[in-house]
Design a protein around this nucleic acid. Structure first.
Lengths: 219, 219
DNA sequence: TGCCTTTTGTGATGATATGCACATATTTAT
DNA sequence: ATAAATATGTGCATATCATCACAAAAGGCA
């Protein structure tokens, strides 16, 4: 298995490929070329071929890629057949929206519980997801074998909540707060900083009115 | 002005610096070193110094950076005193959450209007933000000099909505849909793909249990 | 004052990612 | 069967970032 050393950027593009291949499969497409993928996904065809080449020789010269085969390969590689349970901490506006976002339907990632400290929210059921008190954190994580948390608490509570998560055995955090979280080195954190994304977009618009620098297409 | 060629990554870190300097200012700190910033923001001190060096020689050897001076400099550079008006298209769960997120209070970015095609939503007022019909798009954009839109429509409507935005004169789009939008080259798009972020985090957890590769800290 | 400490700004190097360009293999058409 | 068309996989050049390491400058203390 060529599993060993996929570049970070490639790992982030694989779900994109997967999603598009699903679409192709759905409409009955049998084959696809890197050029066609490139057109649809707005990624350079050479980059796409290189990405796939990390996983093995998945295509055939003069033909392209077999949609079914590639789809199945990526499904295995990305372990799309395993459901991954996650929890969400902080059932505010954004938290509630994400609970309702339903990652599950399309991506085998399931939010199995929400947590909050607001008594008024504890006990609620949001689109089938129960909201618990924080002191049931460890219990629920163990029950559902949860290793990943989505953090949507106010920034003031971010670090203390993170400490609780680490304590309860979490391994990955998707952090929507602007706080830079302090965690042991074995914990993985991905930040999504909505304000920074918006500010950066505005910065580039104001300073480079014409789009001369192609610029990355992701947060 | 050294305004010319700031690396993309630097531009994304500047708001982080700005935010932290505000905090330092608030607690009365007069000076700060790159090492201290590094500790707080979890960014290598050399990277921080290099970032600032793109803007000029803002520090003093043996002393560090003057908090007030640096804060003011960044405020000007990032034009934090100008309010930027933006609109949001698609007042669903996520859209509503973002409307309520209140970028304005802390970051001089103001969502002045929401748009939707749902008759039931048109005319609503969400935390002071009015929701309009899509056919008033151009009018409202012009009224408030809006150049940036946040796109939170269902993926099926993403491209057609984008076409309308482009037509109405928008220049930047913060795209929360998984669609790869097709736009003229002078339009700038930043993607925030929540599903990919979550999937990528999970991928790394499953495949690199120990955090041997430091990994980037942002979407 | 003079010396030691601190800390910047940056040259140099290394790491990571992109995309060109082409040899090579396969398909498709005649 | 043969030629033309297609499209992969990858060597290589280029671009972009991160970080080391250190000279130079300024602060701070005795």
């Amino acid at each position: 298995m060529a599993d060993q050393k996929i570049p970070q950027v490639t790992a982030k593009r694989l779900p994109l490929y997967y999603r598009y291949l699903e679409k192709l499969h759905a409409i009955g497409k049998q084959r696809v070329s890197s050029a066609a993928l490139a057109e649809a996904l707005q990624i350079d065809p050479a980059t796409i071929r290189r990405d796939f080449s990390y996983l093995g020789e998945l295509g055939k010269k003069g033909y392209g890629y077999n949609v079914n085969y590639l789809l199945q390969f990526l499904r295995d590689f990305l372990r799309q057949d395993e459901v991954t349970n996650v929890v969400l901490i902080g059932v505010g506006n954004l938290g509630t929206a994400l609970l309702r976002y339903n990652f599950y339907r399309s991506h085998n990632t399931k939010i199995v519980a929400g947590f909050d400290i607001d008594e008024g929210k504890i006990g609620m059921d949001i689109d089938g997801v129960p909201v618990y008190s924080m002191n049931r954190l460890k219990e629920v994580l163990e029950l559902h074998s949860v290793e990943v948390a989505i953090l949507t608490v106010p920034v003031s509570a971010a670090q203390s909540t993170t400490d609780q998560l680490v304590n309860a055995g979490i391994r990955g955090i998707l952090n929507f707060t602007p706080a830079r979280l302090n965690v042991p080195s074995h914990i993985r954190i991905h930040h999504i900083d909505l304000t920074v994304e918006l500010q950066t977009l505005i910065y580039f618009l104001k300073n480079f009115p014409t789009n001369e620098s192609k610029g990355e297409q992701n947060g």
